[in-house]
Design a protein around this nucleic acid. Structure first.
Ligand SMILES: [Zn+2]
Ligand SMILES: [Zn+2]
Ligand SMILES: [Zn+2]
Ligand SMILES: [Zn+2]
Lengths: 144, 144
DNA sequence: CTGGTGATGTTATAGGATAACATTCAACTC
DNA sequence: GAGTTGAATGTTATCCTATAACATCACCAG
């Protein structure tokens, strides 16, 4: 999907959820889209400052939080970063693989393994909520 | 296992790995043991300062890193915290279940499910690094 | 116009982690 | 015992990440 189409669909997606993809939020999403993999909040902030002149942390954090809440981004806790979700329109439990060396990201279907995790947790009385799984490691091209 | 026995076994465990559980490291481990769930580095730092008078962040971070490397603690990335590993003597990867309602934490051995995830990822050319899995959900007592 | 609501701007600070260098300690050699 | 070496710890400073608190603005309904 090309960038323009993605942004357009993202806007529709937000509307369906009853939220607005404002100019600022759209700009932030566009900046994140400019990276192949994981982006950090302060990186986006720096980019935003180049385009707008001024911007403070809360500006970018609020936009990023909005995008995460609306399913357009995933937060990668282990790396203090964010990645674009390529298929925000279909509800999914993705397996997100993040390369620790190049920052590249791959999403796999993890239905089977997730079910196994859910079963193991249920046996301990714990109800696992729907969520994405983020694993770090090394991608194919970074394996020496 | 009671605290003294745990510390004693932890010391033996480190020795087997060719490392030393020094007084400082032991003290930090003891402080973490004092908490039922997730502890943060700066909380440990504060405790350490109460007991020693002075202590700086690197002191506690180095000790925590050592304990993680030796399998006595797990780092919970998503929460910027650490938990004690109750079964450090058998190699495993933790499945850490965090209750969204009460904040309680349970650790399961996720070696099996992790192997499944690793296989699925390997099929995509991705080498998953050893790590803990953090899942959110609802614990038994919080399920109404 | 006016009040209310959501979004954004602004300032300041809290919270988490590490770099770089100095010092001390334990163990091993001579 | 003195000297040497590498690991561990102390110390200072700084960077990165994230949010609190409050002010302002844009928009729309009444
Ligand atoms: Zn996704
Ligand atoms: Zn890579
Ligand atoms: Zn464990
Ligand atoms: Zn609970």
């Amino acid at each position: 999907m090309d960038k323009t189409a993605f942004l357009s669909q993202a806007e529709q997606h937000c509307l369906r959820l009853g939220n607005r993809l404002t100019a600022l939020r759209r700009q932030v999403l566009e900046l994140v889209l400019g990276y192949p993999g994981v982006v950090k909040a302060y990186q986006v902030l720096a980019d935003l400052q180049k385009e707008r002149g001024v911007a403070a942390p809360p500006t970018v954090y609020r936009a990023l939080d909005f995008l995460v809440e609306n399913g357009l981004l995933h937060r990668v806790e282990a790396l203090n970063g964010f990645i674009v979700c390529e298929h925000f329109d279909c509800p999914h439990e993705g397996l997100i693989l993040v390369c620790a060396r190049c920052g590249g990201v791959t999403e796999l279907d993890a239905t089977g393994p997730m079910a196994a995790l859910r079963d193991a947790s249920a046996a301990a009385g714990f109800a696992v909520a729907p969520q994405n799984l983020v694993l770090t490691g090394t991608c194919q091209s970074c394996q020496a």
